[in-house]
């Protein structure tokens, strides 16, 4: 039986009917056509599906779509506001903190959630925040640099 749910995503109100066995990630990608969040493992190990719900980073592959009812969701598509990039997006480009880009949306959302709760994170805080986001390309150093720069710690 389908369930009727309502939630806000990237500032827009959405009403949808979803099957119980649909994951939140699948709903976002297939029903809302927001394909920024990716499935890399489906098991909470890679972090490429990370989005922000009610201010907190979560793995959207491990949530049911029905659980989104009443929530406020942000995906990578909601990071830039009115065409102005989020500082993280700027610093990721500037530091070449991405290569293939597949982990990038999840990485950005983990970093965004961190800066939302802690605008002045230590290196350990940053590592904790992205410890669950695997990147096979960059070697991570440039990602740390980009997040530090977005937090205003280096220029």
């Amino acid at each position: 039986m389908k369930h009727e749910i309502s939630f806000t995503i990237n500032g827009e109100k959405v009403h949808l009917e979803v099957e119980p066995n649909k994951t939140l990630l699948k709903m976002i990608r297939e029903d809302l056509n927001l394909t920024g969040a990716k499935e890399g493992c489906g098991a909470g190990e890679c972090g490429s599906c990370t989005i922000i719900i009610d201010g907190k980073a979560v793995n959207s592959c491990m949530m049911l779509a029905v659980e989104a009812d009443g929530k406020d969701i942000m995906t990578v598509e909601g990071l830039a506001k009115s065409g102005v990039l989020d500082p993280l997006q700027d610093t990721f480009i500037k530091n070449a903190a991405l290569q293939c880009g597949y982990c990038t949306p999840g990485m950005l959302m983990s970093a965004k959630a961190l800066l939302m709760r802690n605008p002045n994170p230590s290196e350990d805080d940053i590592k904790e925040a992205i410890g669950g986001n695997l990147c096979r390309c960059t070697g991570y150093k440039v990602i740390l640099d980009a997040i530090k720069e977005a937090a205003g710690q280096i220029n």
Partner: peptide, 19 residues
């Protein structure tokens, strides 16, 4: 030179096959 694919990748716009 900045990566030419940077913007499409940080905005989640870049389309991979499964997208």
């Amino acid at each position: 030179v900045k990566r030419v694919d940077g913007l499409e990748k940080v905005t989640g716009y870049a389309k991979y096959v499964d997208d």
